Amino acid sequence: MRARHALAHGDLAAVRRDAERGARLFRRLGDQWGLSQTFFPRAALHEIAGEYREAARLHEEGLAIAQELGLRSEAGKRLCALGRLAFLEGAYEESRQRHAEALRLAAERGHRAGEADARIGLGMVVRRTGDLAAAEEHMRAVLTWFRDSGYAPGTTLALAELGFTAELRGDADRARALHAEGLAAARALGDVRAVALALEGLAGAAAAGGEPERAAGLLGAARTARASAGAPLPPAERHDVDRTWSACRSALGPAAADAAFAHGATHPAEAERAGSVWGTAQFQARA
Rank of each mutant, 00 (worst) to 15 (best):
M1L: 12
M1P: 08
L7I: 05
A8F: 12
H9M: 14
H9G: 15
H9D: 15
D11M: 08
D11H: 10
L12F: 12
A13P: 01
V15I: 01
G22L: 02
G22W: 06
A23E: 08
L25R: 12
F26R: 11
R27L: 14
G30H: 10
Q32L: 12
L35R: 11
S36A: 13
F39E: 11
F39I: 06
F39Y: 14
P41G: 05
A43W: 08
L45H: 03
H46T: 07
I48Q: 02
I48Y: 01
A49L: 02
R53P: 00
E54A: 01
H59Q: 06
E60T: 05
L63D: 04
Q67S: 01
R72F: 08
E74T: 07
G76V: 02
G76T: 14
L79T: 03
L85T: 06
L85G: 06
A86F: 02
A86D: 13
L88P: 05
L88H: 13
Y92Q: 10
E93M: 10
S95D: 04
R96V: 08
H99R: 07
L103N: 06
R104A: 04
A106L: 10
E108R: 12
G110N: 14
G110F: 02
H111R: 04
A113I: 14
E115F: 03
E115A: 13
A118Q: 07
L122A: 01
L132N: 00
A134S: 05
E137Y: 08
M139E: 11
A141M: 13
L143G: 04
T144G: 09
T144S: 10
W145E: 09
G150A: 03
G150W: 00
Y151V: 10
A158H: 03
E161M: 11
E161I: 13
G163W: 15
F164Q: 14
F164T: 12
D171H: 11
R174G: 12
A177L: 04
L178A: 01
H179P: 01
E181D: 12
A184C: 11
A185L: 07
A185N: 08
L189F: 09
D191G: 14
V192N: 03
A194Q: 13
A194P: 07
V195D: 05
A196R: 06
E200Q: 12
A203H: 06
A206I: 10
A208D: 00
A208I: 02
G209S: 01
G209T: 04
E213Y: 01
L219V: 04
R223E: 13
T224Q: 11
S228P: 02
G230F: 02
A231F: 00
L233F: 00
P235G: 02
E237Q: 09
H239V: 09
D240Q: 05
D242Q: 07
R243T: 15
T244Q: 14
R249W: 15
S250L: 15
P254Q: 09
A255W: 15
D258A: 15
D258K: 13
A260S: 14
A262C: 08
G264H: 13
E272T: 14
E272H: 14
A274M: 11
A274D: 14
G275C: 15
V277W: 13
W278A: 10
F283D: 04
